[in-house]
Design a binder for these strands. Structure first.
Lengths: 135, 135
DNA sequence: CCACGCCTTAGACAAATTCTAACTTTTGAC
DNA sequence: GTCAAAAGTTAGAATTTGTCTAAGGCGTGG
């Protein structure tokens, strides 16, 4: 198991260290969608000397190397939108700008199959960059 | 124009004040998806005495009254996801929990029509609550 | 005028994240 | 093995985002 993690880190071009292995063991085996602080709390149990900065450094490195993905949807760090009609958003990853995508440009189907949930709102979040006009 | 804003605030049950009108004039006329701090910066230009607390109070009031919507997708306050396969997320608004929705349960179509953008990633974000089992 | 309620203010506070400077560990050359 | 350079880690300071608090301002009804 620790060997697995070692191999995974190597595969992603991440130099293993005791701290990085400890973080990876937790985040790769959970479906809790933890925040950095939750990772800190969990990993501290088995690795009491680890510092917060290392947690942040390690998580950011993992994201950079493609081993983890960041989700930007928890509370806090919020922006405001006066457009109340259902619509979607495109985030330009080069600039951070958020653009509206009209509701009619995308269609989400099969919503009805999610029987356990009562959906009050949904939107599609697209990430990418503006195409260069060619020619 | 100022009269328009006055009327809108009244329509949404918001007691107008000089500060609230100033904030509304900016946020209702922009498509910049501003953060609270950006609102503060802009409104300070025309209303130098306004305080940050008033900006936050006012924006939160507008959201509460339905005049604005919050978007939780900017950088910061982040959680991490080891699931790299394309999938979607359901946020339980009662608990804040984030659940994975398999990519196969939802289908987004018409992506190809967004010709100006090069999409590197997308996901559907659903908000709501777990249904109570009835009976 | 006075009191009451609502609003605003400045600054304190709190939480999340990044930065910094010093220390430790690893690695590679000799 | 020893040394130096590079990489990683640490604690704590600093920054950023947002809320809370205590005090004061303003308008309306008496």
């Amino acid at each position: 198991m620790k060997d697995d993690v070692f191999k995974i880190l190597n595969d992603y071009g991440i130099q293993p260290s005791a701290q990085r292995v400890a973080v990876a063991q937790y985040v790769l085996s959970t479906d809790e969608h933890p925040s950095a602080d939750q990772v800190f709390a969990k990993v501290s149990n088995t690795f009491p000397m680890i510092s917060r900065a290392t947690i942040y450094n390690t998580l950011n490195l993992f994201v950079e190397k493609g081993l983890l993905r960041e989700l930007h949807m928890a509370a806090g760090r919020v922006v405001f939108d006066p457009n109340l009609v259902r619509h979607h958003h495109f985030i330009n990853e080069e600039t951070g700008e958020i653009h509206d995508i009209e509701g009619t440009q995308l269609k989400v189907t099969n919503l009805g199959s999610l029987n356990d949930y009562e959906i009050t709102d949904y939107q599609v979040v697209l990430r990418g960059k503006k195409k260069n006009k060619v020619g």
